[in-house]
Amino acid sequence: MASPKLSVIIPVHNESACIGPLWKRLFPVLDRIGPSWEVVFIDDGSRDDTLDVIRSLSRTEPRIGAISFSRNFGKEIAIAAGLDHARGSAVVIMDADLQHPPEMIEAFVERWQQGYDMVYGQRTDRSDETRVKRGFAHLFYRLFARFGEIGLPEGAGDFRLVDRKGVEVLRTMGEKARFSKGLYAWIGFKSTGVPFAVEERRIGTTKWSFRKLFRFAFDGIAAFSTVPLRIWTYLGFLISFLSIATALYFLIRTLLFGTDLPGFPSLIISIMFFSGIQLMSLGIIGEYVGRIFAEVKRRPLYVVAERIGGAAEVSNSLVPESYQQRRA
Protein backbone atom coordinates (compact mmCIF):
# COMPACT_ATOMS: atom_id res chain seq x y z
CA MET A 1 0.00 0.00 0.00
CA ALA A 2 1.18 3.53 -0.73
CA SER A 3 1.93 5.55 2.38
CA PRO A 4 -1.04 7.73 3.33
CA LYS A 5 -0.83 11.43 4.02
CA LEU A 6 -2.41 11.16 7.49
CA SER A 7 -2.44 8.41 10.11
CA VAL A 8 -4.68 8.45 13.18
CA ILE A 9 -3.53 6.35 16.16
CA ILE A 10 -6.20 5.38 18.69
CA PRO A 11 -5.20 3.31 21.76
CA VAL A 12 -8.16 1.32 23.13
CA HIS A 13 -8.70 -0.82 26.19
CA ASN A 14 -12.19 -2.23 26.77
CA GLU A 15 -13.74 0.55 24.66
CA SER A 16 -16.10 -1.46 22.44
CA ALA A 17 -19.05 0.83 23.18
CA CYS A 18 -17.06 3.94 22.17
CA ILE A 19 -15.79 2.81 18.77
CA GLY A 20 -19.09 3.12 16.90
CA PRO A 21 -19.87 6.70 18.06
CA LEU A 22 -16.23 7.66 17.52
CA TRP A 23 -16.21 6.39 13.95
CA LYS A 24 -19.44 8.26 13.11
CA ARG A 25 -17.73 11.53 14.00
CA LEU A 26 -14.23 10.68 12.81
CA PHE A 27 -15.04 9.45 9.29
CA PRO A 28 -16.64 12.72 8.05
CA VAL A 29 -13.63 14.65 9.34
CA LEU A 30 -11.16 12.40 7.53
CA ASP A 31 -13.33 12.44 4.42
CA ARG A 32 -13.18 16.25 4.33
CA ILE A 33 -9.39 16.21 4.75
CA GLY A 34 -8.95 13.92 1.74
CA PRO A 35 -8.81 10.27 0.66
CA SER A 36 -5.22 9.60 1.74
CA TRP A 37 -5.52 8.51 5.37
CA GLU A 38 -5.49 5.50 7.66
CA VAL A 39 -6.77 4.74 11.16
CA VAL A 40 -4.73 2.38 13.35
CA PHE A 41 -6.35 1.12 16.54
CA ILE A 42 -4.03 -0.25 19.21
CA ASP A 43 -5.93 -2.84 21.26
CA ASP A 44 -4.15 -2.86 24.60
CA GLY A 45 -5.24 -6.30 25.77
CA SER A 46 -8.99 -5.63 25.87
CA ARG A 47 -11.12 -8.26 27.59
CA ASP A 48 -14.40 -7.26 25.92
CA ASP A 49 -15.33 -7.39 22.21
CA THR A 50 -13.34 -4.28 21.26
CA LEU A 51 -11.25 -6.18 18.72
CA ASP A 52 -14.34 -7.76 17.12
CA VAL A 53 -15.91 -4.33 16.63
CA ILE A 54 -12.71 -3.05 15.00
CA ARG A 55 -12.53 -6.15 12.81
CA SER A 56 -16.08 -5.51 11.57
CA LEU A 57 -15.23 -1.89 10.72
CA SER A 58 -12.10 -3.00 8.88
CA ARG A 59 -14.15 -5.27 6.60
CA THR A 60 -16.19 -2.29 5.43
CA GLU A 61 -13.33 0.24 5.34
CA PRO A 62 -9.89 -1.08 4.28
CA ARG A 63 -8.16 2.02 5.58
CA ILE A 64 -8.89 0.87 9.14
CA GLY A 65 -6.37 -1.44 10.75
CA ALA A 66 -5.49 -2.64 14.23
CA ILE A 67 -2.66 -4.00 16.30
CA SER A 68 -3.72 -6.26 19.16
CA PHE A 69 -1.38 -6.83 22.10
CA SER A 70 -0.97 -10.21 23.77
CA ARG A 71 -1.83 -8.55 27.10
CA ASN A 72 -2.31 -5.12 28.63
CA PHE A 73 0.96 -3.14 28.34
CA GLY A 74 -0.41 0.32 29.20
CA LYS A 75 -1.38 3.39 27.19
CA GLU A 76 2.15 4.80 26.90
CA ILE A 77 3.37 1.57 25.27
CA ALA A 78 0.27 1.51 23.05
CA ILE A 79 1.17 4.96 21.75
CA ALA A 80 4.72 3.76 21.03
CA ALA A 81 3.30 0.79 19.08
CA GLY A 82 1.05 3.12 17.12
CA LEU A 83 4.02 5.26 16.14
CA ASP A 84 5.85 2.10 15.03
CA HIS A 85 3.03 1.11 12.69
CA ALA A 86 1.67 4.45 11.44
CA ARG A 87 2.81 5.18 7.88
CA GLY A 88 1.45 8.69 7.31
CA SER A 89 3.39 11.86 6.60
CA ALA A 90 1.65 13.21 9.71
CA VAL A 91 0.37 11.19 12.66
CA VAL A 92 -2.50 12.17 14.96
CA ILE A 93 -2.77 10.58 18.41
CA MET A 94 -6.15 10.64 20.14
CA ASP A 95 -8.31 8.75 22.64
CA ALA A 96 -11.38 6.70 21.74
CA ASP A 97 -13.70 8.07 24.44
CA LEU A 98 -14.62 11.23 22.42
CA GLN A 99 -13.13 13.52 25.06
CA HIS A 100 -10.73 14.44 22.26
CA PRO A 101 -13.08 15.97 19.62
CA PRO A 102 -12.34 14.42 16.19
CA GLU A 103 -13.28 17.73 14.54
CA MET A 104 -10.06 19.24 15.97
CA ILE A 105 -8.03 17.14 13.53
CA GLU A 106 -8.86 19.58 10.73
CA ALA A 107 -7.32 22.42 12.74
CA PHE A 108 -4.26 20.26 13.45
CA VAL A 109 -3.77 19.51 9.75
CA GLU A 110 -4.20 23.18 8.87
CA ARG A 111 -1.44 24.19 11.33
CA TRP A 112 0.75 21.36 10.01
CA GLN A 113 0.34 22.62 6.46
CA GLN A 114 1.40 26.05 7.70
CA GLY A 115 4.78 24.58 8.65
CA TYR A 116 4.41 23.34 12.25
CA ASP A 117 5.93 19.95 13.02
CA MET A 118 4.03 19.41 16.27
CA VAL A 119 0.45 20.58 16.84
CA TYR A 120 -1.04 19.75 20.23
CA GLY A 121 -4.48 20.17 21.70
CA GLN A 122 -4.30 22.50 24.69
CA ARG A 123 -6.98 22.03 27.30
CA THR A 124 -8.67 25.34 28.10
CA ASP A 125 -10.26 24.50 31.45
CA ARG A 126 -10.57 21.80 34.09
CA SER A 127 -13.95 22.76 35.48
CA ASP A 128 -15.14 19.15 35.16
CA GLU A 129 -12.48 17.99 37.64
CA THR A 130 -12.44 18.21 41.41
CA ARG A 131 -10.52 21.01 43.08
CA VAL A 132 -8.02 18.50 44.48
CA LYS A 133 -7.30 17.02 41.05
CA ARG A 134 -6.90 20.47 39.50
CA GLY A 135 -4.54 21.45 42.29
CA PHE A 136 -2.36 18.38 41.82
CA ALA A 137 -2.28 18.90 38.04
CA HIS A 138 -1.15 22.51 38.47
CA LEU A 139 1.46 21.42 41.03
CA PHE A 140 2.81 18.77 38.66
CA TYR A 141 3.33 21.25 35.82
CA ARG A 142 5.06 23.68 38.18
CA LEU A 143 7.37 20.97 39.55
CA PHE A 144 8.16 19.70 36.07
CA ALA A 145 8.94 23.21 34.83
CA ARG A 146 11.15 23.86 37.88
CA PHE A 147 13.06 20.57 38.03
CA GLY A 148 12.62 18.85 34.65
CA GLU A 149 15.03 18.98 31.74
CA ILE A 150 12.43 20.69 29.56
CA GLY A 151 9.17 22.58 30.05
CA LEU A 152 5.70 21.23 29.30
CA PRO A 153 2.90 23.40 27.89
CA GLU A 154 0.23 23.33 30.59
CA GLY A 155 -2.93 21.63 29.38
CA ALA A 156 -1.16 19.73 26.58
CA GLY A 157 -1.63 15.97 26.48
CA ASP A 158 -1.44 13.11 24.02
CA PHE A 159 -4.03 14.62 21.67
CA ARG A 160 -1.74 16.00 18.98
CA LEU A 161 -0.36 15.81 15.44
CA VAL A 162 3.29 14.88 14.90
CA ASP A 163 5.13 15.29 11.60
CA ARG A 164 6.88 12.22 10.14
CA LYS A 165 10.34 13.46 11.09
CA GLY A 166 9.21 13.78 14.70
CA VAL A 167 7.67 10.30 14.57
CA GLU A 168 10.94 8.80 13.35
CA VAL A 169 12.81 10.38 16.26
CA LEU A 170 10.23 9.12 18.77
CA ARG A 171 10.51 5.61 17.34
CA THR A 172 14.20 5.45 18.22
CA MET A 173 13.40 5.94 21.91
CA GLY A 174 13.00 2.45 23.32
CA GLU A 175 12.78 3.30 27.01
CA LYS A 176 10.37 1.21 29.07
CA ALA A 177 9.22 3.80 31.64
CA ARG A 178 7.74 6.13 29.05
CA PHE A 179 6.34 9.58 29.63
CA SER A 180 5.13 10.60 26.20
CA LYS A 181 4.33 14.21 27.09
CA GLY A 182 7.94 14.72 28.06
CA LEU A 183 9.22 12.94 24.95
CA TYR A 184 7.14 15.19 22.69
CA ALA A 185 8.69 18.25 24.31
CA TRP A 186 12.19 16.76 24.43
CA ILE A 187 12.49 16.16 20.67
CA GLY A 188 11.79 19.85 20.00
CA PHE A 189 10.71 20.92 16.51
CA LYS A 190 8.41 23.82 15.67
CA SER A 191 5.27 23.47 17.82
CA THR A 192 2.00 25.24 18.43
CA GLY A 193 -1.10 24.63 20.54
CA VAL A 194 -4.77 24.63 19.56
CA PRO A 195 -7.17 25.33 22.47
CA PHE A 196 -10.03 22.89 22.92
CA ALA A 197 -12.60 21.96 25.54
CA VAL A 198 -12.56 18.39 26.81
CA GLU A 199 -15.94 16.82 26.24
CA GLU A 200 -17.75 14.91 28.94
CA ARG A 201 -17.27 11.17 28.75
CA ARG A 202 -20.69 9.76 27.90
CA ILE A 203 -19.76 6.10 27.46
CA GLY A 204 -17.79 3.91 29.85
CA THR A 205 -15.61 5.02 32.73
CA THR A 206 -12.10 6.39 32.98
CA LYS A 207 -9.22 3.95 33.40
CA TRP A 208 -7.14 6.52 35.33
CA SER A 209 -7.54 6.24 39.09
CA PHE A 210 -5.91 8.75 41.43
CA ARG A 211 -3.22 6.19 42.28
CA LYS A 212 -2.40 5.65 38.60
CA LEU A 213 -2.27 9.39 37.95
CA PHE A 214 0.10 9.89 40.89
CA ARG A 215 2.32 7.09 39.65
CA PHE A 216 2.26 8.53 36.13
CA ALA A 217 3.26 11.97 37.45
CA PHE A 218 6.15 10.48 39.43
CA ASP A 219 7.31 8.52 36.37
CA GLY A 220 7.31 11.75 34.39
CA ILE A 221 9.47 13.62 36.87
CA ALA A 222 11.80 10.66 37.40
CA ALA A 223 12.23 10.18 33.63
CA PHE A 224 13.35 13.76 33.06
CA SER A 225 15.04 14.78 36.30
CA THR A 226 17.44 13.50 38.96
CA VAL A 227 16.14 16.01 41.50
CA PRO A 228 14.38 13.31 43.62
CA LEU A 229 17.82 11.77 44.17
CA ARG A 230 19.53 15.09 44.89
CA ILE A 231 16.85 16.07 47.42
CA TRP A 232 18.02 13.33 49.77
CA THR A 233 21.62 14.47 49.41
CA TYR A 234 20.63 17.98 50.44
CA LEU A 235 18.43 16.62 53.22
CA GLY A 236 21.33 14.50 54.48
CA PHE A 237 23.57 17.55 54.70
CA LEU A 238 20.81 19.48 56.48
CA ILE A 239 20.21 16.73 59.04
CA SER A 240 23.95 16.36 59.63
CA PHE A 241 24.24 20.09 60.23
CA LEU A 242 21.28 20.06 62.64
CA SER A 243 22.71 17.06 64.52
CA ILE A 244 26.07 18.83 64.96
CA ALA A 245 24.30 21.99 66.12
CA THR A 246 22.17 19.97 68.55
CA ALA A 247 25.26 18.17 69.91
CA LEU A 248 26.99 21.50 70.53
CA TYR A 249 23.88 22.85 72.25
CA PHE A 250 23.68 19.90 74.66
CA LEU A 251 27.44 19.99 75.28
CA ILE A 252 27.33 23.65 76.30
CA ARG A 253 24.16 23.09 78.35
CA THR A 254 25.74 20.13 80.17
CA LEU A 255 28.87 22.11 80.98
CA LEU A 256 26.82 24.99 82.37
CA PHE A 257 23.89 23.26 84.08
CA GLY A 258 24.85 19.60 84.46
CA THR A 259 23.33 16.46 82.96
CA ASP A 260 19.56 16.14 82.54
CA LEU A 261 17.68 12.89 83.02
CA PRO A 262 17.60 11.16 79.59
CA GLY A 263 14.18 11.31 77.89
CA PHE A 264 12.89 8.02 76.54
CA PRO A 265 10.10 9.55 74.32
CA SER A 266 12.49 11.95 72.59
CA LEU A 267 14.89 9.08 71.91
CA ILE A 268 12.17 6.92 70.32
CA ILE A 269 10.86 9.83 68.23
CA SER A 270 14.36 10.60 66.97
CA ILE A 271 15.01 6.98 66.02
CA MET A 272 11.67 6.68 64.19
CA PHE A 273 12.19 10.01 62.38
CA PHE A 274 15.66 9.21 61.09
CA SER A 275 14.64 5.65 60.22
CA GLY A 276 11.81 7.04 58.11
CA ILE A 277 14.20 9.44 56.36
CA GLN A 278 16.56 6.58 55.55
CA LEU A 279 13.80 4.32 54.25
CA MET A 280 12.36 7.08 52.03
CA SER A 281 15.77 7.87 50.58
CA LEU A 282 16.38 4.17 49.89
CA GLY A 283 12.95 3.99 48.25
CA ILE A 284 13.79 6.85 45.87
CA ILE A 285 17.12 5.24 45.00
CA GLY A 286 15.28 1.94 44.48
CA GLU A 287 12.90 3.59 42.00
CA TYR A 288 15.81 4.71 39.84
CA VAL A 289 17.63 1.38 40.20
CA GLY A 290 14.43 -0.40 39.17
CA ARG A 291 14.25 1.69 36.02
CA ILE A 292 17.86 0.85 35.20
CA PHE A 293 17.10 -2.84 35.77
CA ALA A 294 14.10 -2.70 33.42
CA GLU A 295 16.16 -1.02 30.69
CA VAL A 296 19.17 -3.35 30.79
CA LYS A 297 17.00 -6.46 30.35
CA ARG A 298 16.33 -5.24 26.78
CA ARG A 299 12.91 -6.83 26.56
CA PRO A 300 10.63 -5.60 23.73
CA LEU A 301 8.19 -2.85 24.59
CA TYR A 302 5.20 -4.94 23.53
CA VAL A 303 4.15 -8.24 21.94
CA VAL A 304 1.68 -8.27 19.05
CA ALA A 305 -0.86 -11.10 19.06
CA GLU A 306 -2.79 -10.11 15.94
CA ARG A 307 -2.81 -7.60 13.11
CA ILE A 308 -5.93 -6.51 11.28
CA GLY A 309 -6.18 -4.81 7.91
CA GLY A 310 -3.63 -3.56 5.42
CA ALA A 311 -3.35 -0.25 7.25
CA ALA A 312 -1.61 -2.06 10.11
CA GLU A 313 1.36 -3.20 8.02
CA VAL A 314 4.77 -2.77 9.63
CA SER A 315 6.38 0.30 8.09
CA ASN A 316 10.06 -0.65 8.46
CA SER A 317 12.57 -2.82 10.25
CA LEU A 318 12.44 -0.88 13.53
CA VAL A 319 9.69 -3.33 14.56
CA PRO A 320 11.37 -6.74 15.10
CA GLU A 321 10.14 -9.71 13.07
CA SER A 322 9.50 -11.59 16.32
CA TYR A 323 6.53 -9.29 16.96
CA GLN A 324 4.77 -10.50 13.84
CA GLN A 325 2.80 -13.54 14.90
CA ARG A 326 -0.47 -13.60 13.03
CA ARG A 327 -2.43 -11.42 10.61
CA ALA A 328 -6.19 -11.43 10.32
Rank of each mutant, 00 (worst) to 15 (best):
A66S: 07
D84N: 06
I77V: 13
F147S: 03
A247H: 08
E295M: 14
K190Q: 14
L279Q: 07
D44G: 05
R291E: 14
L213K: 03
A145L: 03
I239F: 13
S281H: 13
G310P: 08
I271C: 05
F241N: 05
S322F: 13
V162A: 06
F189S: 00
A81F: 15
K133P: 01
L255K: 07
E313A: 03
P101S: 01
G148P: 06
K5P: 02
G65K: 08
H138K: 14
S46R: 02
Y302R: 02
S270W: 09
G88H: 06
L143N: 10
V39T: 05
P21G: 13
A86M: 05
T124D: 12
A90V: 09
G88E: 00
A245V: 15
M94D: 09
A185C: 10
L279A: 15
S58K: 12
L57K: 12
A177K: 03
Q113W: 04
F264I: 15
V132R: 03
L229N: 00
I268L: 14
S225W: 08
D31E: 12
R71A: 12
A2P: 15
I33E: 09
F274L: 14
D84G: 07
G193Q: 13
S127R: 09
I268G: 01
F273G: 04
Q324N: 02
T206E: 10
A17D: 13
R59T: 06
K24D: 12
S16G: 04
L248G: 14
F216A: 10
A328G: 06
E200Y: 09
S89A: 08
F274V: 15
Q122N: 03
L170Q: 01
V303D: 11
V40A: 01
G290C: 10
L183P: 00
I271Y: 04
E154Q: 04
D260E: 08
K24L: 07
F237A: 09
K207V: 15
E295P: 13
G182F: 02
S16R: 12
S46K: 05
L57Q: 02
F273M: 10
M272Q: 03
S270T: 14
F257K: 06
R63G: 06
W208V: 15
E15V: 03
E38M: 01
L152V: 12
R55K: 11
F274W: 10
G45H: 05
E110L: 02
G236I: 01
V167G: 04
Q113K: 00
S281T: 12
G174F: 03
I10D: 00
S281Y: 11
P35I: 02
I105F: 11
W112N: 07
L213M: 11
K5C: 04
P11G: 00
